[in-house]
């Protein structure tokens, strides 16, 4: 190899090796990267979905007799999820017979609907919770986020003024209704609520009041 070069020099012609520019054209690379970034951005589940936790009591076995928990009638609120995104509710003891059934109030899932009625009844507890939250945000009370949640839970548990809500989804309600009403419970800060089955008396009341419901819902 070395010999050949020498020969070249002897010929006298100055042969410079062609000078390549040190710059590489990066455009295709950038194109590709753009494409990949777009792909990854669109396919990643970046924001994880949130979950809403509910706790349901253990099922009562058929041949087991369990006394229903005693709750104050004055605090009880029966919320029935009806068809067509309507809520029917009445206060007091769950209705036992069709003859002297209480009249249910019709409302919906909007801010002025069920939320207003629940908030009205849950005033004291709601105020306690918001006051506590304000104290935390202003720095009067210093707590870790976990213990803040625990404290709110305790406030809710100790409360004895707010309503006890019995949620009774009818056969014609949807999953959205179900989630919405449980969501309302956490928005308004209801201390005690549970999901129970709708009784046949209430189904009857619902059918006569909503009108649209088919009589097949009262098949008992």
């Amino acid at each position: 190899m070395a010999e050949i070069i020498q020969e070249d020099k002897q010929k006298g012609g100055k042969r410079r090796p062609k000078k390549h520019s040190t710059r590489i054209d990066m455009t295709p690379m950038v194109d590709l990267m753009c494409l990949l970034i777009t792909f990854f951005m669109l396919t990643t589940a970046f924001s994880k979905p949130k979950v809403m936790q509910i706790v349901l009591p253990e099922k009562v076995k058929k041949n087991e007799k369990v006394e229903p928990p005693k709750i104050a009638e004055s605090r009880t609120l029966n919320v029935i999820l009806g068809p067509n995104n309507k809520i029917y509710w009445y206060p007091g003891k769950p209705a036992q017979d069709v003859e002297n059934a209480p009249v249910m109030q019709e409302t919906d899932y909007s801010d002025t609907g069920i939320r207003a009625s629940l908030l009205e009844r849950n005033k004291a507890l709601f105020k306690k919770i918001t006051d506590f939250e304000n104290q935390v945000t202003t720095g009067e009370i210093e707590l870790k986020p976990d213990s803040v949640q625990a404290r709110i839970k305790k406030i809710k548990k100790d409360d004895d003024t707010g309503p006890i809500v019995l949620i009774k989804p009818s056969k014609l309600s949807t999953y959205k209704n179900f989630v919405d009403i449980i969501d309302e419970m956490s928005i308004v800060g209801i201390g005690t609520y549970t999901v129970t089955d709708i009784s046949w008396v209430e189904e009857h009341m619902l059918a006569s009041q909503s009108g649209s419901a088919t009589p097949s819902t009262t098949n008992k």
Partner: peptide, 22 residues
């Protein structure tokens, strides 16, 4: 699920902010 002693359920939802003022 309740038949198999599951008591705690996590319902997957989308986040939506709600402001409540009393």
């Amino acid at each position: 699920l309740q038949d198999y002693q599951v008591k705690v359920f996590n319902l997957i939802t989308n986040l939506e902010k709600v402001e409540v003022t009393q």
